[in-house]
Design a protein around this nucleic acid. Structure first.
Length: 550
RNA sequence: GCUCUUGUAGUUUAAUUGGAUAAAAUGAUGGCUUCCGGAGCCAUUGUUGCAGGUUCGAGUCCUGCCAGGAGCACCA
């Protein structure tokens, strides 16, 4: 990367580590560094040493900063690369030979796919796509919440209905399941004994009770059907769906290992884990009735993933409300000494809150993702006319995804219908529209530019906006690299929205098809193609479609 | 109670190991099409919650306060 190259140049010149950044104003150069200020060296001296490098057109000192201006050939050459590499442009092999396991989505069985799970699904998928683009071997795992005490609650409630109301389990819908779950919590509030009943049912389930298993199986099937519909609507495919129940028979050895290594002890009948120096609060590994907890299941999951995939990185795209838990989990893995050189990362996402507070499944206060998606599609339909259903879907879903991805993942999002359905301004459809525009121009010109003599173009005579576009096009690699390092798809959004804005300005100011000379026209077409390609590559990483017309 | 976390135009957000004039969208108002797509473009808004501190330089780091959110043993 260019940035590192310049950093190395500086280091060789002054024997000090330097950090080179992208100034946000092109007047301050293409790259700049504050190393002279930091190290109290005369900046001019450094500038003089570096200005001989073939990379630079000029090196300037302003306010103690050293600003580097790249030779224009660099940007022209970059555009040639876009034309040549197309959908490969921006991809790399930095991740070659490395494996990353990405745990995302993870909806809970027997609850409908709520708006809250949208974030994990979309951000997780974007990170998956991003790392793949960078050459990593990616393994997506949808860790379904299909085991645990909540099934005790549900089974208890369903069992009651079977007895009293002759309920038939195969006739249940996902809404019924959700209603039963809410009902249980309402009644348990009046009568806390019910919680014990629920725990007992879960214990039975874990011990292989036939009736419990049957009800659980039915719930799982009902839910999976619903999830499949949502995933197809979202255009998301996750490599593996190994839910928690997959690990039921893999927990005993882990429990034994924990005991052998003296990491767990009994307290009030339960097996708990306490951390050295009490740096983290303690956690129940196995309940006093002998039933397992999510904690033990997660350890089994990690063991399985390490063995099966030998990953270098395991990331969890899970809400911020579990951050303490993941610290505890990762610390436990550390204490077990399982994977000293594997990196564990909890990519938090902020909670999706309603204007009045937190959405709660227990209280039945949820917004169903499917409703949101359908509403978005309807709104897109209004704008595009009824004629094209597929397009309305691409646009509507794109809007919902972009809305989420464009905000920093760790921040809470207050759910707002108007905002999530936004089709204008900084939105998915804006980018799709801009892309469609580039395709339309190219089509009118008779196809993509193939034999443009970009090296014949004189950078200096270009219009200002052309220079800017050309430069911004060359920042794509850095944008995705940064996004990957920080697990922040919103950086890609920032970048590509800014690029699209510049293109629309260019489009309004400058004639493409009616340029003065043939070379100029070809160059502008090449720019148009380049911008379209980079928008498309960005959207693809974000998991958003790029229709040619809209 | 303890721990973590957030506070930026009216609203929703952005801001590259601390960097140069804090940037967008949205809402409102006005304007732009003899010409490549008007889901577009242009023009008009700031005590970064408050008070200190560190630094050449603070939205970013530290301290205190105020206000929200999350978590803290048999839920996940």
């Amino acid at each position: 990367m260019l940035r590192e190259e310049i950093e190395n140049l500086i280091e060789r010149a002054i024997h000090k580590k330097a950090f080179v950044e992208r100034p946000d104003d092109f007047n301050y150069g293409d790259f700049s560094t504050n190393v002279a200020i930091k190290e109290k060296i005369d900046p001019q001296e450094i500038a003089d040493k570096l200005k001989e490098s073939p990379l630079f057109e000029k090196v300037e000192v302003v306010n103690g900063f050293i600003n580097f201006f790249l030779k224009p050939e660099h940007f022209l050459e970059n555009l040639s690369q876009v034309l040549k590499q197309k959908e490969e442009y921006g991809s790399s092999n930095v991740g070659k030979g490395k494996t990353i396991v990405i745990d995302y989505s993870g909806p809970n069985i027997a609850k409908s796919f709520g708006i809250g799970h949208l974030r994990s699904t979309i951000i997780g998928q974007a990170i998956y796509n991003l790392y793949k683009f960078l050459g990593y071997k990616c393994i997506g795992d949808n860790h379904l919440g299909d085991w645990g005490t909540q099934f005790g609650k549900l089974i208890f409630q369903i069992e009651l209905k079977i007895k009293n109301e002759k309920l038939k389990i195969h006739e249940l819908t996902i809404d019924d399941l959700e209603r039963l779950y809410v009902e249980f919590h309402k009644e348990a509030e009046q009568n806390p004994v019910l919680n014990d009943e629920a725990r007992a049912w879960f214990k039975k389930l874990e011990d292989g009770d036939k009736k419990a298993k049957e009800i659980w199986q039915a719930c799982k099937e009902i839910s999976l059907k619903e999830f499949a519909r949502i995933y197809s609507l979202l255009g998301v495919k996750i490599d593996n769906t190994l839910g928690e129940s997959f690990y039921v028979d893999k927990m005993q050895p882990i429990f034994e290992e924990m005991k052998d290594k003296d990491l767990t002890k009994q307290s009030e009948g339960a097996w708990v884990v306490e951390f050295p120096n009490n740096e983290l609060s303690s956690l129940v590994l196995m309940k006093s009735d002998g039933a397992t907890t999510y904690y033990l299941r997660d350890l089994a999951t990690i063991k399985y993933r390490l063995k099966k995939w030998k990953p270098n990185i395991i990331v969890y795209e899970v809400g911020v409300d579990q951050s303490l838990y993941f610290k505890q989990l990762f610390k436990t893995v550390d204490l077990l000494g399982w994977a000293k050189d594997v990196r564990f990362e909890h990519i938090v996402h902020g909670l999706m809150r309603s204007k009045t507070g937190k959405f709660s499944t227990r209280k039945g206060d949820t917004i169903h993702l499917e409703d949101v998606l359908k509403e978005a599609i309807n709104k897109a339909k209004e704008l595009s006319g009824e004629k094209n259903k597929e397009l309305a879907k691409q646009v509507g879903i794109g809007a919902v995804k972009y809305n989420d991805l464009s905000q920093h993942h760790s921040r809470d999002i207050v759910f707002d219908w108007d905002k999530i359905l936004n089709l204008k301004g900084n939105s998915g459809p804006y980018l799709q529209y801009t892309f469609a525009r580039t395709q339309s121009v190219l089509e009118k010109a008779g196809g993509s530019p193939t034999s443009v003599k970009i090296n014949k173009v004189d950078f200096e005579v270009l219009e200002e906006i052309e220079k800017i576009l050309l430069k911004k096009l060359s920042h794509f690699n850095e944008a995705i690299e940064q996004a990957a390092i920080t697990f922040s798809p919103n950086l890609i959004c920032n970048y590509v929205f800014d690029l699209a804005q510049s293109f629309n300005l260019f489009y309004n100011e400058i004639q493409i098809l009616k340029a003065d000379t043939e070379l100029q026209k070809q160059f502008r077409l090449a720019l148009t193609f380049g911008v379209g390609q980079v928008i498309k590559n960005s959207l693809t990483i974000l998991g958003i479609e790029s229709p040619n017309k809209m």
